[in-house]
Design a protein around this nucleic acid. Sequence first.
DNA 1: GATGAATGAGGTTTCATTCAT
DNA 2: AATGAATGAAACCTCATTCAT
Lengths: 194, 194, 194, 194
Amino acid sequence: MKLSEKKVLKKKEQILLSAITIINQKGYSGATMEDIAAELLMTKGSLYYYFKNKSDLMYQCHNFILSQATEDLRDILHAEGTVEEILRHMIATHIDYAVEEKETFNMIMEPKRFFNTEQLHLVLKLRKEYESLFDQIISRGVETGSFLAKEPKIARMMILGAMNWVQQWYKPGGRLSKEELVELYSDYILKILK
Amino acid sequence: MKLSEKKVLKKKEQILLSAITIINQKGYSGATMEDIAAELLMTKGSLYYYFKNKSDLMYQCHNFILSQATEDLRDILHAEGTVEEILRHMIATHIDYAVEEKETFNMIMEPKRFFNTEQLHLVLKLRKEYESLFDQIISRGVETGSFLAKEPKIARMMILGAMNWVQQWYKPGGRLSKEELVELYSDYILKILK
Amino acid sequence: MKLSEKKVLKKKEQILLSAITIINQKGYSGATMEDIAAELLMTKGSLYYYFKNKSDLMYQCHNFILSQATEDLRDILHAEGTVEEILRHMIATHIDYAVEEKETFNMIMEPKRFFNTEQLHLVLKLRKEYESLFDQIISRGVETGSFLAKEPKIARMMILGAMNWVQQWYKPGGRLSKEELVELYSDYILKILK
Amino acid sequence: MKLSEKKVLKKKEQILLSAITIINQKGYSGATMEDIAAELLMTKGSLYYYFKNKSDLMYQCHNFILSQATEDLRDILHAEGTVEEILRHMIATHIDYAVEEKETFNMIMEPKRFFNTEQLHLVLKLRKEYESLFDQIISRGVETGSFLAKEPKIARMMILGAMNWVQQWYKPGGRLSKEELVELYSDYILKILK
DNA sequence: GATGAATGAGGTTTCATTCAT
DNA sequence: AATGAATGAAACCTCATTCAT
């Protein structure tokens, strides 16, 4: 890779990070190219040097966060520990993304409203991959006898939904610390899997 | 109430129903006044005879569905049956709304992005009321010894989240019928409360 | 005249009076048919039974006030008194209209912006008639040796302008009472005519 | 100041000048953003690159002319000459603005109908400043014994009103040249101040 | 690489006007 | 006589996108 290409990549990442900040504040449709450029002390026009259009930028933001979360989860999944320990760790990580990256991570957002066919395809693939990590830990738990799940996919969806919902009501600095929240959620989730 | 007022109310409801259809297809920001008018074979301008502005219309759509769901749940809550039967019935109803009314019912949608302060206040109140119906059945279950919940509010939130998430993935006509889905969900949710 | 016609005339006058109130508050373009109807506890549509269109209504409002003022001034002009007394009386009356009827009386308003050709013709004629009353008293004063005016029309225009301007700055309840104001204005105007 | 800023300023001025032309023809509410854009062979949207909204543009037009007139008058006020000479010069200038810039200069227009609170504040301040220049020359005249004025503010208002009214009736190319008009007005105004 | 400037499509809103009842 | 309801034109404004420099 040439030096110039590296520079471009770095700039792209900078833009993504700023865009993510804005999206988390204003949502996908609320965020304007102007907002994002302003955050970077750039002008709208420049963004088009790095990204084909708004949809492309939004897509890459979602991808960026989701890929990162996927990587994090994968590391956790392959680390040492009992099935239960690993699941608790995964729950903590997921909730952290949901709370911190709110909109951008938002797996709740209907992707077909924002992305074109090609992007959609990749987003769905990535999401599936992400979700499968939970499937893997569940099935590992079932195999080792730690978990019990009649319809493991359904259980996984319930778990994901329960966790994503956190971003709707959890306010940092409230009655519960994030750690307490995570523990409560983990306990309940484990009940689902017993 | 005068006849003319009744007629206006009826027309308003017609508009709401059409608007709800459109919103469920395109989301709140995706739905245009033009779209909604077209669905009714009216012109944009006419909508403003019945609603002050777009925000007002959107707000009333959400309210309409949410109020209806609240009423339905309240009836269920006050009907005969064991705690478990009632909860199962409530779950079935909620999931039905989540699947059928998708966007309009969407309790995931952040209301402050679409509604003004005054509307926001009322929406949040209505949502709280809705959620409290689940709190009531849970606490009844706890009192009668049917349920066990260390942190009932957290449990309720998990349950709501799990159910709302259904609208992200459930496609009617898929592997599972809605009835099977509801049964599986109910079983899992009861596990949370044991 | 039939009774029904009389009733129509009476209603028309009622509408005019309400319209005048609104116009004085919001100006010609600011006043909407809806505003005017609301003031009368009527509906927009009904106004069209009495007036062809908005322009027609506006026109008749202006006419109404201007005709009334013209009549008032004519009476004053033909009453007993010295030239100076009569002029002072006319000034008092004009200023009163300018202050009380603000927008509707507004002779400053460019009529061609609001009225069609035919209306325009009549408005201009009426205005000319109104202005001529001041010309008459001035020329009477010149004839009797009370006034001196090299270019009486120019003097008259200055006087009208000075008086109309009052409505831009005079606030009832300020430092000056309307009576004091009128006296000061009269004194200055007489200086113009000496 | 950077070159680019200068260019923006120049363009803004161009737009202001075109807008002023249109406003003088159609008035503030009659002038549309489309009209103004067309005059410049631009599109509506472009105007919003330079001005926040219509109200902002209108406000800056009024300000532009009023500031220019204020500067002109201030120069005259501080130039050599007898009090009477200076006043005559000021009158000539004011009448010129009133006739040439009609609507935009229009001090008769009620600013609160077109401008928001903040703009209103500045407009009123600017107008006060403008009017004070006439107060200054009057008071100078009174001090030097050239003028006599019992209530100088009232006199100034009459004078302003008389002059502003010119724009209602004066048509270039009529019986009187602008020079003759100005001379007649000056003579009459001096009578007020004797 | 970046920018300033412009564009144009598309959205919301207002309002005079019409017309069947 | 009056009204309720609908219409449609025209206004304002936003914003993703383009492109010469």
